[in-house]
Design a protein around this nucleic acid. Structure first.
Length: 305
RNA sequence: GGCGACGUGGCCGAGUGGCUAAGGCAACGGCCUGCAAAGCCGUGAACGCGGGUUCGAUUCCCGCCGUCGCCU
């Protein structure tokens, strides 16, 4: 049985995790579910700001440490794992607080998106075609096969064009037939509370956070991971990608750190836009203390869930 | 003090005696159904200052200021 759930969303370093922890500490029968594409990797702890051992001992945390850093992972697997976890929590008679930072994963679970499926062979073929005869040609083909999908994407966005064609060819169904996409915001049983700060403050918080991660030994963590190897997805995580580049001799340490700060800041803006578009999110513009300012709203939503 | 080089948008960095002065980064705005901490699209903004040569100067000459290097 699906557990009642409430979601705390927002950009990195907004304090959403601390809000969730505060809820779990004061409400009985609450378990936390991380909606984060990078915390699923074991061993990637510091850079992904995983909850501490103490926090995890105090409150049940889910969808963290699901796989090895060498493994590939994507939304569909995450959605599958989520369904299992949310059912378990429900069976226990508990409630879930989702802590969401990865927009796509979050939508996939709260709106229960129907994800098309995967046809790697077709995809590979399409990619070589894109490089040989040009992306333009592929987009033109998509326009014939699925004009609705084609109209919705930039003809220059290889990933999207290829994926849409992959699904059309592989499934025999139009890509656009899998649902309205992400521009529709149907009523959801999961209430969403957004936590955000003024842009300037957010930037400062991020810079501080990155420096804290470095001080906590992020470089050593990356070295250790490099010995085992990182999957394509894991290797592009913020902080990891930059530090790997540094260890490969591509840039100085300071440059890597600076680059991490910048990229994280940009990521936070993208998160803000992603969640900001969702009219269902109730926002808390934090002035000083995310817990004091946002927790009451989350608590209230949880009582209605 | 002398000699030399340089001074282009927030930063880096091309370039030309005369079309609307590249590009990259950042910033800002927007997008996203299997790499999503990824990827894609769009936008604004500049020739150090003062003279001169010229039909016309960012480009050539002089001076000033500034930066860097070398020399005494």
């Amino acid at each position: 049985m699906t557990a009642p759930a409430v979601a705390v969303v927002g950009p990195t370093a907004s304090g959403k995790s601390s809000v969730a922890m505060a809820i779990a500490a004061t409400e009985a029968g609450v378990e936390l579910v991380s909606i984060d594409s990078m915390q699923v990797y074991r061993g990637m702890d510091i850079g992904t700001a995983k909850p501490s051992a103490d926090d995890r001992a105090a409150v049940a945390h889910h969808l963290i440490d699901l796989i090895d850093p060498t493994d590939e992972f994507a939304v569909a697997e995450f959605q599958r794992a989520y369904r299992a976890v949310i059912a378990d929590i429900g069976d226990r008679g508990a409630r879930a607080v989702l802590v969401g930072g990865t927009g796509l994963y979050h939508r996939a679970v709260i709106d229960d998106l129907e994800l098309p499926g995967e046809w790697p062979a077709i995809r590979t073929r399409l990619m070589t075609e894109a490089h040989d005869s040009g992306l333009r040609a592929l987009h033109a083909r998509l326009t014939e096969v699925d004009p609705v999908a084609a109209a919705k994407m930039e003809p220059t966005n290889e990933r999207r064009v290829v994926r849409a064609l992959e699904v059309c060819e592989g499934s025999g169904r139009r890509f656009s037939s899998y649902g309205p996409g992400l521009e529709a915001y149907p009523p959801s049983r999961v209430a969403q509370i957004g936590v955000r700060w003024d842009r300037t403050v957010q930037a400062a918080r991020i810079e501080q956070r990155v420096h804290d991660m470095i001080a906590s030994g992020l470089l050593d963590e990356v070295r250790r991971l490099l010995d085992v190897g990182l999957s394509r997805t894991a290797a592009q995580a913020l902080g990891y990608r930059e530090l790997i580049a540094h260890l490969d001799g591509e840039c100085s340490f300071d440059e890597a750190v600076e680059r991490t700060v910048t990229r994280t800041r940009q990521f936070a803006v993208r998160q803000l836009r992603w969640f900001g578009r969702d009219p269902r999110v109730r926002w808390v513009d934090v002035e000083h203390d995310p817990v004091a300012e946002a927790a009451p709203l989350v608590r209230e939503a949880l009582h209605h869930a």
